[in-house]
Structure formats: C-alpha cells, structure tokens
C-alpha cells in the first residue's frame, strides 16, 4: 500500500500554505467575532476528537489491538496538565508536555503486561485499566476525588488546538508510513509470521500503545483547558466507546477515515444535544450495521484522496 517516499519541495510549500490559510481564516473568524460561542465549542470538540480518534486508530486500526481504555489516558493527561497549570501555575506548554509524558508513561505501564493478551481479552483488560484509572482519581483527595477540579483557565486557544491536531496527524501518519509503521501493521496482519520475520511484535505493540496514549493525554490537556472543569466521571468507559465509534465508523486503519468520522460524530452529537438517548441509539445502529455490512469501516484501510490529501500529511519534512 505504501509508496516509496521522496521529499518534494514544491508540494511541501503548497501543503504548508494550505495549513496556514486554514489556520489564519479560522483565527480571523474568531478574533473578528464572526464565529459564535456555539461554533467555537464545536470546533474545539472536533479538534480534540480528531486527536483522540487518530491516536486510538493507531492502536486499534493499524496495530489491530482492540483497546477500550483510551479515555483513561485522556484522564491522565487532563489531570497531569491541570496539576501543572492550575496547581503549580506553570505555563500551558509545561502542562501539555506533562500530559503527554504522564499518559505515555501510563500507556507503557499498562501496555507492557496487557499487550500479551489477545483480542477480546485485551479489550476487557484495557477497559478494566481505564476504569481503574477513573476509580483511583476518584479516591485521590489532592485532585478533589469525585467532585473533580474546577476553575481551570481556558488556555486551549485555536492556535493550540490547531497545532495539536496537525502535530498528532503528522506524527502518526509519518510513523505509519515508515518501516516502523510497516512493522506495526505486520503485527495486525499476522503476529506469528511477523515475529518470525524478525519483528519484535511486543515492542511494536507497546510502541503503538504508548504513542496512542501520549496523544490521548494531549487531547485530555486540551479538553481540561477548554471546558474549565474535569471530573473522573467524564473519562469513564462510555467516553472510550465514543472514540471507538469514530474509529470503527471511519475505518480501522484509515487516518483520513478517523478524521472524517471524528468530525461527523462531533457534529452529530452537537445536533442531537437535546436528545442524548437518540444519539446513543444512533451510535448503536451505526456500530451494528457497519460491523454487519462493512466490518472494515466506511473507509476500510484506504486513505481519502491519496494524491491530494494523503501527501499533505505524508511527505512533510
């Protein structure tokens, strides 16, 4: 599937140009007051969900290891960043770095023992770990237990959100489209054969898990500093399932699919805000019908518009 990559300067400039245009346009709309609060919130949710979906897709889609604990890593990131910014009054960047490191560490600690398990056992173990993270947070007085932390400064501005999305997608696409990425994909395709071809499958499973967790942590930090308040309950397994729905809908192993699904689901959620039950029933129908009629997800493992879109993310220096 992967093409050999060469550095193409003209393309690179065009792609950076497109990103700059998108960024400036939205920044202008926000600062000129043309984008009301409702759209701004949705925009932030879209950014956060893209990061979550793309990072979970690395684990579930490319590595083929079904993880149901992504919200747990998001929680770790959210709390780590808030401790840095709100408790210690350090700059946001420190909070973000702390979030990434803490979540990556959590991913490592959880990944090493659980990734020996296969398929549905792994799914349940990660679900369990995700819930344990939540319960532990509920029992730590330092972070106010079940009540959560309030009064977090709103530091997740558009530049942070946009920058984070771009970096997440770049890192994951660049990783996947490399020899390391092929090793990761070989684990999904046939673990035994991969191992016998010299791929240390455990190492690559853990690598994917840690990178995925790290970006979930980033998403958590952005979330905490956009919505002012974090509670352990926010990061329960229903949140993990939300992200899973995006990945499954978009296609396991398609980054563009995950991005589109994240946008679609966020918009759908916003549209059905007053009817939460209907939203969930719709999720249910989406999951079941997609699995029955198109188990590889809407996009399968293909990427949208390889020629235009794909290169935008693929060949960047």
């Amino acid at each position: 599937m992967q093409k050999t990559q060469h550095f193409k300067p003209v393309q690179f400039i065009i792609e950076v140009g497109i990103l700059v245009v998108i960024f400036t346009l939205v920044q202008y709309l926000i600062s000129a007051g043309l984008l009301n609060q409702y759209y701004q919130i949705n925009l932030a949710s879209i950014c956060i969900n893209i990061i979550l979906a793309v990072s979970l897709n690395l684990i579930n889609g490319f590595t083929g290891q079904l993880s149901l604990g992504h919200a747990g890593f998001m929680a770790v990131g959210a709390y780590a960043s808030v401790i840095m910014t709100t408790y210690m009054e350090l700059p946001f960047i420190v909070g973000i770095i702390a979030a990434c490191l803490a979540a990556a560490l959590a991913g490592f600690i959880i990944g090493v023992p659980t990734l020996r398990l296969r398929g549905d056992y792994l799914a349940i173990a990660t679900l369990g770990f995700g819930e344990i993270i939540r319960v532990v947070l509920q029992n730590i007085d330092y972070v106010n237990g079940p009540a959560g932390i309030m009064g977090i400064s709103k530091l997740s501005t558009w530049p942070w959100l946009f920058g984070s999305v771009v970096i997440t997608i770049l890192v994951i696409v660049n990783l996947v489209n490399s020899s390391y990425g092929r090793a990761i994909i070989s684990v999904r395709e046939d673990e035994v054969a991969a191992e016998l071809m010299g791929v240390n499958t455990t190492k690559y499973k853990v690598l994917a898990f840690v990178v995925g967790a790290m970006f979930a942590g980033l998403a958590g930090a952005l979330y905490a500093h956009y919505f002012y308040i974090i509670k352990p309950e926010t990061f329960n397994f229903m949140k993990s399932f939300d992200i899973l729905v995006m990945v499954v809908l978009g296609g396991l192993g398609s980054t563009t699919g995950a991005i589109i699904a994240a946008i679609f689901i966020t918009v759908l959620t916003a549209a059905l805000q007053s009817f939460p039950a209907i939203r969930m029933i719709l999720y249910a129908v989406i999951l079941v019908t997609v699995m029955i009629y198109r188990p590889q997800g809407l996009m399968g493992n293909r990427e949208l518009g390889r020629r235009t879109f794909g290169r935008l993310w693929g060949d960047k220096k």
Partner: peptide, 20 residues
C-alpha cells in the same frame, strides 16, 4: 467475521438496549 467485529457489535447492541 473477526472476534473484534463481533465484540464491537455486542457493544452496539448494549447501547441499543440501554438507550432505547
């Protein structure tokens, strides 16, 4: 189909029962 697909379907059915 794969066990993962079946598991995801089961999660879907679970949502369906709860929210209906």
């Amino acid at each position: 189909s794969t066990r993962i697909a079946a598991l995801i379907t089961a999660i879907g059915v679970s949502f369906f029962l709860e929210y209906t």
